[in-house]
Design a protein around this nucleic acid. Structure first.
Lengths: 259, 259
DNA sequence: TGCTTTTCATTCAAAAACGATCAAAATCAA
DNA sequence: TTGATTTTGATCGTTTTTGAATGAAAAGCA
């Protein structure tokens, strides 16, 4: 083995520094010095270079990362409340995807988990209006087609009339949709009308529409309605969903899967 | 091992060096000397040759592989190589943006720096086909409109015919374009035809087309041509650009700014 | 506010790495 | 074999990188 304390090449070291800073969002000069076993002067010089390259911004005592942290906000989601259910729902959804299919991925955290599971599949074509889903698949995985449109910051999705231009030109086998709320009376609703517009359009261009919604969304009604129940073919939810509601939905012709 | 007694032929040795560098992404001259049992002078000469062949890039103390994993290294090299010039160019470009303007941001590292500078501007509308530029502006900043289209992983941009759907519905005041290469004879060229398609379309939908290209791009010719000089209104480059070329471009009617 | 501690930028000298050059060694062609 | 050509290793002056030292600036604290 050559694992002895090897001197490290400067570019290599700077790459390490960059990663450490990006990881924690911030890093102290003193900590970097200890980890990399070089003098503070060298660390400072490296940070100076990394700052010129736009990768970090120096602050008194260390440096903060300037690199986009979209991916990490995903990690934040992972620790959120209903994440276990969401992951199970995403796994169930994944099992329904056949080979060489084209699918649509909606915005929302559940579909984001699904997106992450697709990184190994390069037989698929994924259409999405979610910037986060696209980022998950940015490195490798399926063919990715983005809908385009105006960026809605709150959900990190592309919405509005402009999105229809691309959507009108594609058809997908399965559309995996999220929702802010669903109930028997009012159907599916979300907060933003522009977002609803896209969802509604997607439902029209999919052979099969699959709703991914954990039970916390049940009986919730939001502002903009984007779909009636008859447009939905399948609902995947968790066993927190009441039997009454599940039975009613099945009566409407839906397939309901609880996991 | 028996190989140590045998002197190794030079091309064979260089192939070994290439592999070692590729393997670790980076290698030190001293390590290579020990492993191959030749003098540092020889290693240096070999690295020089490998650099000319484009296989490695030399750095103080060793060399880094240029043929390593697709995405990351390519983009990192791009962002670090001539970053000072690129930041200056981006700053110059920023100074040209008026209030409440709509602009297009192309893919590429220089425009990425420009995107970063726009995070404080919420009076603007930014149209872009670059996923990275959009990510920079994902949290706050201007109104962002993404073109949509198929994701090209190497450049992290949305390209191809689908992009035209959105682009045809918008007009921008200024389009900030990057390029892989530019020269007097062949105009502006880039590697991917689908990417060229988008660039070309953008140029048609902009009141003013501004090319951001550091001097390392000069006299380079890539595969797919996307624009002739008469479509470009302004070139922002660095003072590495030869006076001869600048003069010739000015004769063509371009405004050339070197910084 | 004034004082202490930490962090920073600058300077300097030592060490490492570099490029250029040249002579020795190896290879090749006859 | 001999002579020409290429490759290699050693040397030397130059450049780059590094770590330590110093005073200035910033942050913490009473």
């Amino acid at each position: 083995m050559i694992s002895e304390a090897y001197p490290v090449l400067a570019p290599q070291r700077r790459e390490q520094i960059r990663k450490v800073v990006k990881q924690g969002g911030i890093a102290r000069v003193e900590d970097l010095r200890k980890n990399l076993k070089v003098s503070v002067a060298t660390i400072r010089r490296d940070l100076e270079i990394l700052e010129e390259e736009g990768k970090v911004r120096r602050v008194h005592g260390g440096a903060v990362s300037m690199e986009s942290r979209l991916e990490e906000s995903v990690f934040d989601d992972k620790t959120s409340l209903a994440s276990k259910e969401k992951i199970r729902i995403a796994e169930e959804a994944y099992s329904m995807i056949g080979t060489e299919e084209s699918i649509f991925l909606d915005g929302g955290s559940t579909t984001l988990f699904l997106a992450r599971m697709l990184t190994g599949r390069n037989d698929l074509t994924v259409v999405t209006n979610s910037l986060r889903a696209a980022s998950e698949l940015a490195e490798k995985g399926p063919r990715v087609i983005l809908t385009g449109g105006e960026l809605r910051r709150l959900s990190q999705t592309m919405v509005g009339p402009l999105s229809s231009a691309v959507l009108n030109q594609v058809r997908v086998d399965k559309a995996f949709m999220g929702t802010m709320g669903f109930c028997l009376m009012n159907g599916l609703t979300t907060t933003d009308p522009n977002e609803a517009f896209v969802k509604s359009l997607v439902a029209e261009h999919a052979r099969q529409v699959i709703l991914l919604a954990d039970s916390s969304k049940a009986e919730k009604v939001s502002f903009a309605r984007f779909s009636e129940w008859k447009q939905i073919d399948l609902l995947i939810s968790d066993d927190g969903l009441t039997e009454v509601l599940a039975k009613s939905l099945r009566k409407l012709g839906l397939v309901v899967r609880l996991c």
